[in-house]
């Protein structure tokens, strides 16, 4: 049964992870694998698009915490976008907006990465 899936799109220097379905302790290893793949390929500009994610438990939030240090140490970031009200509430209850930038639309998050890359070059 495919309760959860992660798709990866490349937008210039930015990797967009599209999450779909139900993210819990059973499916979180799938997301872990996707992040690990990005880090192995040394891609540290990561946008996570939640538009097709119906459900998240703390196991999903734990995966984001697991990778944020490595990503930021390499001048990258994990930016979060397109959350439903229900999914956003879970992040908000735990105070995650203190640590992660959350955007209504993917476009804004990607633009922020690309502007930063332009300034550096």
């Amino acid at each position: 049964m495919s309760e959860f899936s992660v798709g990866i799109r490349q937008r210039d220097t930015v990797s967009v992870l599209d999450l779909r379905g139900y993210l819990d302790a059973h499916t979180a290893p799938e997301l872990e694998k996707a992040f690990q793949k990005e880090l192995d390929e040394q891609r540290y500009n990561i946008v996570v698009n939640f538009s097709d994610l119906s459900y998240i438990s703390s196991a999903g939030l734990g995966v984001l915490m697991q990778f944020i240090e490595d990503v930021r140490r390499n001048d990258g970031d994990i930016k979060l976008t397109n959350m439903s009200h229900r999914v956003y509430n879970v992040f908000d209850l735990l105070g995650f907006p203190m640590l992660y930038e959350i955007f209504p639309e993917e476009e804004e998050a990607v633009k922020k990465f690309l502007n930063k890359t332009e300034k550096l070059s």
Binding site: S58, Q66, L93, L94
Partner: peptide, 8 residues
């Protein structure tokens, strides 16, 4: 990371 379940 971890330990967030009980907080929630």
């Amino acid at each position: 990371h971890g330990g967030l379940g009980i907080v929630l």
